[in-house]
């Protein structure tokens, strides 16, 4: 770890990701070690905020069931239409019944990413534990679904029948590897993007304490904040569309 404390210039870009007990005063107690699985931490709190925000948007927003929608209802309907169309386009008609699950993933990631951009907040999706769980749910779900729906034929996905016979075993190995790398890239992409963005923002915010370059640093933080807003939405979109792409393998048969 960079030890610059002695120079009076300390940037701790990773400190924002520390998981700690929420109802805990750091001055008097140790808030970070030996956290039990049931304890209420900042992760819990920000996930709860995300859940409440989703409920506010999707349930309270559509409360009126108005034919001419209010602004909130219109937003909810836009997200609904967007994800529904994505699921239908990518996975086909058979995939539409998994739409609620895809919607759950999209909304959770979108709201976690966006809430993480609030200064002093905590980004739950920047944690590998969270994104690996999300990706593994998709991976295991898709694999089990594919095996249940297509039986052993699901494994035919790895046997590229359009390639020359001599190449097929090699391709099969590559396909199997790439299949098992999916949850890794799926999760690390999300966590890495958010972690990198937030860490960069923090580093530039740290530079703002140096008088000479502080105007540049403040400008850079502003610019990166805008970029991070884009990244937050795009990563939620990417995670969702990749979920749909993987889902297509399971429900759309073994063609690859």
């Amino acid at each position: 770890m960079t030890d610059v404390a002695e120079t009076g210039f300390a940037i701790h870009p990773m400190d924002q990701f520390i998981v700690k007990r929420f109802f805990c005063d750091a001055a008097h107690a140790d808030c970070t070690s030996n956290i039990k699985w049931y304890e209420i931490t900042n992760v819990t709190v920000w996930m709860a905020v995300a859940v409440l925000a989703i409920i506010a948007l999707m349930v309270l927003g559509s409360r009126g069931r108005a034919v001419i929608p209010t602004r909130l209802q219109s937003m909810g309907e836009m997200i609904y239409g967007f994800i529904y169309k994505m699921v239908e386009d990518v996975t086909g008609h058979d995939g539409v019944k998994y739409f609620p699950y895809v919607m759950t993933l999209f909304l959770f990631i979108l709201f976690s990413n966006l809430l993480g951009l609030i200064p002093m907040s905590f980004t739950t999706t920047s944690h590998v534990a969270v994104t690996v769980t999300l990706a593994l749910l998709v991976f295991l779900g898709v694999t089990i679904l594919g095996l249940v729906k297509n039986g052993i034929g699901f494994l035919g996905m790895f046997w590229v029948s359009s390639a020359p016979l001599a190449l097929r075993p090699v391709l099969a190995v590559i396909e199997v590897i790439s299949y098992f790398v999916r949850p890794v890239s799926h999760s690390i992409r999300l966590a890495g993007n958010l972690m990198a963005g937030h860490a960069v923002m923090k580093v530039f915010a740290g530079f703002a304490s140096m008088a000479v370059i502080s105007p540049v640093a403040v400008g850079a933080v502003t610019a990166i904040y805008g970029l991070e807003l884009l990244v937050a939405v795009v990563q939620a979109y990417v995670f969702t569309i990749l979920t749909c792409v993987y889902l297509k393998d399971a429900v759309g048969g073994a063609h690859h």
């Binding site: 770890m1 990773m14 400190d15 990701f17 520390i18 998981v19 070690s33 030996n34 956290i35 039990k36 699985w37 049931y38 304890e39 931490t41 992760v43 819990t44 996930m47 709860a48 995300a50 859940v51 989703i54 409920i55 999707m58 349930v59 609620p100 699950y101 919607m103 759950t104 909304l107 959770f108 739950t124 920047s126 944690h127 590998v128 534990a129 969270v130 769980t133 999300l134 749910l137 966590a191 972690m195």
Partner: peptide, 28 residues
């Protein structure tokens, strides 16, 4: 060094994540 790799907090995160997902799924 990296809070993300602190395995001791994973159980907590995964537990609350699953609860959050289940709540969102059922509400949706």
């Amino acid at each position: 060094g990296m809070p993300q790799l602190d395995i001791s907090t994973w159980a907590n995160q995964i537990f609350w994540l699953v609860i959050a997902l289940v709540v969102i799924y059922f509400v949706l």
